[in-house]
C-alpha cells in the first residue's frame, strides 16, 4: 500500500492530490450556491414566510452535509466511528434542543407568556 500511494516528489500532482483538490473546489462551489439562494430568498422575499423558513432550514441542512462531506471528508468508506459519532450527537441534539423547545413552548403557552412575533 505504502509504495503504491507514495507521493512522487514535488513534480506533478498525483491523482490523489488532484482528487483532494477537486473535493475542496466542489465543496466551496456547492456551499456558495447553498448560501446564495437562501440569502437571495430572504433579501427579496420571493415566497411567503412559512415556506421560506422551511427552505432556509433545508438549505442549511444540505449545506452542513456538504461541509461534512467535502471539507471534513466524512464518508462511508472510512472507519464508521466518525460518522456514527456525528449521528449520535445529532440524535442527542434533536432530543435536547427539540425537547427544550417543546417544553418551553408549552410552558409559554400555558403561562400566557407573550406569543412569538
Amino acid at each position: 500500500m505504502a509504495q503504491v500511494h507514495e507521493a512522487d516528489g514535488q513534480t506533478e500532482p498525483s491523482e490523489e492530490e488532484r482528487r483532494d483538490f477537486r473535493s475542496y473546489v466542489r465543496g466551496i462551489g456547492l456551499a456558495l450556491l447553498l448560501t446564495l439562494v437562501p440569502f437571495a430568498l430572504v433579501r427579496w422575499a420571493w415566497i411567503p414566510r412559512f415556506p421560506l423558513l422551511i427552505a432556509i432550514g433545508v438549505f442549511a441542512l444540505v449545506q452542513m452535509i456538504v461541509h461534512f462531506r467535502f471539507f471534513l471528508h466524512i464518508g462511508f468508506r472510512q472507519k464508521r466511528e466518525d460518522l456514527q459519532l456525528i449521528l449520535f450527537s445529532t440524535l442527542l441534539l434533536i432530543i435536547l434542543v427539540g425537547g427544550t423547545i417543546w417544553i418551553m413552548g408549552s410552558l409559554a403557552l400555558r403561562m400566557a407568556m407573550p406569543p412569538q412575533p
Binding site: L92, I95, L96, G99, I103, S106, L107, R110, M111
Partner: peptide, 13 residues
C-alpha cells in the same frame, strides 16, 4: 438523555 423533565413535573408544562 430523555428523562430530564421528571425533575420538574410541577413546573407548568
Amino acid at each position: 438523555f430523555t428523562v430530564w423533565l421528571h425533575h420538574f413535573f410541577t413546573m407548568g408544562q
